[in-house]
């Protein structure tokens, strides 16, 4: 558990960080360090340079602007968990946060760090997909905004270019009559998700489904939107039977992970069961 030697850079502005990133090859961005540092201690990652962005204060905020909630990439899990703005306007995030790690992890780990690491069993990606977030990334040459579903490309692989830093997560404020829920089955050793299902659903007064987004983590090499589930619900009048039927589609079309903790078959089953439960709970909250 002793890492290899590395150079440690501590920029205080985003521009400094971006310029450091573009001038040093084999550099990694260090935010909360809860994924990268363990990998380094195991020498599974041995970057030559660490660029610590935790001192960049303008990456740390939760605020409302133009119908969106903007979250700085350096905002910690705990800050999200305890945000009154999010609790009121986007409760799926405050519900998801306490499932991450433990108190110490939540006080250090960041939303941006978790998304950029793209662990296939991390909690945030499911919620970020379900709230329909956009992800803003910057390089020294400019910035671009990606949809969450375009951001996650494979296991621990995102659309981030080597010279880019994830800077902001933008979440559309859900309309009235929206309910959400996060359901998670923990892998007992690590606490990571065997399966995590995040749901955000909007019904009209006739209980017709206006919008629904289902994000699933832990099941596949990357988090994904369960389009099959969503399609079965959109435009339909919601009842328990329909929710259960739709949930059956949760694992369709994915290549499920399999390990000593859960087979592909069991993971798929859990995804279906907990999609059903998350849908039921989300609807019950409307």
């Amino acid at each position: 558990m002793i890492p290899a030697a590395f150079e440690y850079l501590v920029p205080t502005t985003l521009d400094e960080a971006l310029s450091a990133l573009s001038t040093h090859t084999d550099a990694k961005i260090l935010a909360g360090g809860h994924s990268l540092i363990p990998a380094m201690k195991l020498r599974l990652a041995s970057p030559k340079y660490l660029i610590d962005i935790s001192r960049i204060s303008d990456l740390n905020y939760v605020r409302e602007s133009g119908g969106q909630i903007l979250i700085g990439a350096g905002t910690t899990h705990y800050q999200i968990e305890s945000s009154t703005l999010l609790k009121e306007k986007c409760p799926l995030l405050t519900e998801t946060a306490p499932y991450i790690g433990d108190v110490q992890v939540r006080n250090r780990g960041t939303l941006g760090g978790s998304l950029a690491h793209a662990d296939p069993a991390a909690d945030w990606p499911a919620a970020i997909l379900a709230v329909g977030a956009e992800i803003n990334v910057r390089s020294s040459r400019g910035e671009r905004t990606l949809k969450a579903e375009d951001f996650f490309v494979d296991m621990m692989t995102t659309a981030l270019q080597p010279n880019e830093i994830l800077t902001e997560i933008r979440i559309p404020i859900p309309p009235q009559r929206t309910g959400s829920a996060y359901e998670k089955v923990k892998q007992p050793a690590s606490g990571f998700a065997l399966v995590g299902v995040a749901v955000q659903i909007t019904l009209d007064t006739n209980r017709t489904c206006q919008r629904v987004q289902v994000g699933i983590t832990g099941l596949a090499p990357k988090p994904f939107r369960a389009i099959g589930v969503e399609n079965m619900l959109k435009g339909k009048v919601i009842n328990d039977q329909l929710l259960a039927q739709a949930a059956e589609k949760a694992a369709d079309g994915v290549d499920p992970l399999s390990d000593i903790h859960a087979s592909a078959e069991y993971r798929s089953h859990l995804a279906r069961v907990h999609t059903k439960r998350a849908l039921q709970r989300a609807v019950s909250r409307i």
Partner: peptide, 23 residues
Amino acid sequence: ALYEEVVYDENGQLLTGSFMDYC
């Protein structure tokens, strides 16, 4: 009863080599 198990694969590799996998 519920959680712990040291797992080696058929090649003798220890698969539960950290608290990520040994519960």
